[in-house]
Amino acid sequence: MELEDPDWVHKLCAGDEAAFAELVRRYHPQMVAVARGIVGDSIADEVVQEAWISIHRNLSGFQQRSSLKTWVYTIVCNAAKTRLCKEHKHRGQRDNSLEPAGMPAEFFDENGAWREPPSDWHLDTPEQLLEESQLQECIDKTLSLLPEQQRAVFTLREVEQLDLSSVRNKLELSDSNVRVLLHRARLKLMQVINHYQETGTC
């Protein structure tokens, strides 16, 4: 779903409340996921609410030099980082391990060659996968269980398709950290989809 239609953005910035409600509907869950990656679960909701107030207040001055999406995430990430400073809080559990993330070791022999090669998938286009409502439930559940930072990276990169350097800046993570977290999240989802292809269940 893209809300970057210029007419719509124009309405939004002119103070149209229905357009604003649409903006909230579109971004709120993703903003919470991103804020959690910075401040942790307990105050993320509050931070996002503050961000919404500031977005609402500043929309009339939104310069369309950056995309609305980038602007919205810059505000929520700045709100989260400010909050973190104010409370002298350390981030929630950080996943700083740079261990290379790959498939589990038992999939490979001692030379690193596949012992259990990937099985063929009968659903092999995104469209086919999107038709599976039970798979969607499995994905929702998996996402809700991802570590906070992994979820935040996944949300900004995969769902919102921001580029990697922008993800890194917004979350204040290192380049290699972002890449490892992203890869871990992808492999986790891959395993869920693989299991679903084999069994039809989560």
């Binding site: 509907r25 579109r26 709120h28 995969e158 769902v159």
Partner: peptide, 9 residues
Amino acid sequence: SSRAGHQCA
């Protein structure tokens, strides 16, 4: 997952 991962409020 870019599409399946998107949630609406």
